[in-house]
Design a protein around this nucleic acid. Structure first.
Lengths: 188, 188
DNA sequence: GTCTATAGTTGGATAGAC
DNA sequence: GTCTATCCAACTATAGAC
């Protein structure tokens, strides 16, 4: 892997684990096995490198979600597949965790990929729920946009619960609860 | 307010806004209008002060939740009251946000109040849902513990969505979605 | 109890040699 | 492209005067 590649990948790991505020250029360099001069040759500084890392992580998250959401099956089945897909629960969401990072939120540039990714996910899910409504799969009492928000929130909040206890159990429970609530709305 | 009081309150504010990693002793002192010597006289250091702040925040969160959850009304009504209670959505949850703080999670001592508070909330809600189940208010298809996890996760994740967009709208949508899903399970 | 002085470490970055 | 040297501010804390 090239040096810029290694720097980006190292930054992705550290941002995931320690957040933007908790990640220093020095730590990135050491993790990447690159010197100071090398890092500042390829990137203008910490924000520049972080932006590259965040963009890639966001892209990857979209691709991972799309792989499940764009699959076969009914709306409910695709939502269930998304909720039940394998996750590194205790590490949390590498995109969602950035919303708790004050410096990321304060920077228009760094926040943009975060906003866009979570909004994309919300809308993608809303589209699927709407499909289910249109085809009579769900009872019409539901609002697609609201349900999509609930789904994303349950996942993001599930990470919080899991990390607080140090066990994925609460995440799984939250997901099962949501699926149980959603199930009886199925008409087909 | 006494100096220790001001230091604790300032730490609470800063932990909420910037997290543990992003909060320096110096910032706390300035916010509290206290000198270095003063702070180190009353507290052994940053972790000690943070612990006092976190404990108080955790206590307050419990009291706020209990005020709503211990009120009158059916199980559904109390859950709805909890979900719909007024919140400073964009600031997020002062307890939940700490789960994304690597140094808090790494410290048994600092993490304990976080774990305990979120577990208490989960169990408190589970008790209410179970009450609803026992009294035939909800259809027996539901598992109290799972639903409680879903409720807490929706709230915690709602903060993530709100902060990512800079607007409380997504939080509100997630909550309404959850209530819509829960409603038809009501027998009474 | 509070203040100032001091100190070692890290954060984040620049300069210039190679 | 990479390395070393250098820089200044901030972080976290201790020491000792008042």
């Amino acid at each position: 892997m090239s040096t810029p590649e290694r720097l980006i990948e190292s930054t992705r790991e550290l941002l995931w684990e320690r957040g933007y505020v908790g990640t220093s250029p020095k730590a990135i360099q050491q993790h990447a096995g690159a010197g100071q001069g090398s890092m500042y040759h390829h990137f203008s500084g910490k924000p520049d490198l972080a932006l590259a890392a965040i963009r890639r992580t966001a892209e990857e998250m979209r691709a991972t979600a799309e792989a499940v959401l764009g699959g076969d099956g009914s709306a409910y089945e695709r939502v269930a597949a998304y909720l039940l897909r394998e996750r590194d629960v205790l590490r949390g969401c590498p995109v969602g965790r950035l919303t708790m990072d004050p410096d990321v939120i304060a920077s228009e540039t760094l926040r943009a990929p975060v906003t866009e990714t979570l909004e994309w996910l919300r809308e993608r899910l809303a589209g699927i729920v709407q499909e289910g409504l249109d085809q009579g799969e769900f009872t019409p009492a539901l609002d697609a946009d609201e349900i999509a928000s609930t789904i994303v929130a349950t996942v993001q909040g599930g990470y919080v619960l899991a990390r607080s206890t140090g066990s994925p159990a609460a995440f799984d429970a939250g997901v099962r609860g949501l699926l149980a609530l959603l199930a009886p709305h199925r008409a087909g």
